[in-house]
């Protein structure tokens, strides 16, 4: 977006402090705030400015922590209620797969367009578990149809029954597929409430 302009060392230190103080902001908001403050300092305190001028400019800007209080709307950001956007995202991620799979994609879209989640949250929401409970239902149907039995009256032969190794893998997969979406939903709900 911008080529970092030449800045006075004191201004550099200030931006570093601000970046540190802004760690908890959603990435987009943080980058935007830092870009704006950088642009401000490039004009108010260019590299060639005297130390006194730079200090005045920084004093006028105020403490980084103070700027963040304004951004967060309060000193200790309280847990926020989930918005419609976030609730819809979580529900669609869990159950949207049953709506011809497109519902889940809608959930992914809402997840990635919300500023209440960080990149990490969004990756977890997408990958645990793709398709949500529709994938679980599909897995259930797939597993139960693996074992096929044929024959009649007393003589039953079954093929494709569970082997020991296979069944351990299946149990692990089943746990992931059934517990994963619920755990991810809880995680996303908690995270969205924490974000300022």
């Amino acid at each position: 977006m911008t080529t970092p302009a030449e800045m006075h060392p004191l201004a550099e230190t200030y931006v570093k402090e601000l970046r540190h103080a802004a760690k908890k902001l959603p990435r987009a908001q943080r980058n935007e705030l830092i870009a704006e403050i950088r642009a401000h300092l490039a004009e108010a305190a260019p590299a060639c400015a005297s130390q006194a001028d730079v200090l005045t400019a920084l004093e006028r800007l105020g403490e980084p922590a103070g700027i963040l209080v304004e951004q967060g709307g309060g000193p200790a950001p309280l847990a926020r209620r989930l918005g419609f956007h976030e609730i819809a995202a979580i529900l669609l991620l869990m159950f949207g797969g049953f709506l011809v799979f497109v519902g889940w994609l809608g959930g992914v879209f809402l997840l990635w367009t919300s500023d209440r989640w960080t990149l990490r949250d969004k990756l977890i929401g997408t990958l645990v578990v793709p398709g949500g409970y529709a994938t679980a239902a599909y897995a259930l149907v797939a597993v139960s149809s693996v074992e096929e039995c044929s024959g009649s009256s007393g003589q039953m032969t079954c093929t494709g029954g569970p082997t020991t190794l296979g069944s351990i893998g299946q149990i692990a997969l089943a746990v992931f597929v059934f517990v994963g979406p619920l755990a991810a939903a809880f995680y996303l709900a908690t995270r969205a409430r924490q974000q300022p």
Binding site: E36, A39, H40, R60, G66, E70, Q71
Partner: peptide, 27 residues
């Protein structure tokens, strides 16, 4: 542009104590 707005408000007597807080307001 952002700096113009912030600077103009900063010049007005007693209106803005810390210019930095204007950026969250703009956003």
């Amino acid at each position: 542009y952002s700096y113009e707005i912030v600077h103009a408000l900063g010049q007005a007597q007693g209106l803005v104590t810390t210019e930095g807080t204007l950026y969250p307001l703009l956003s």
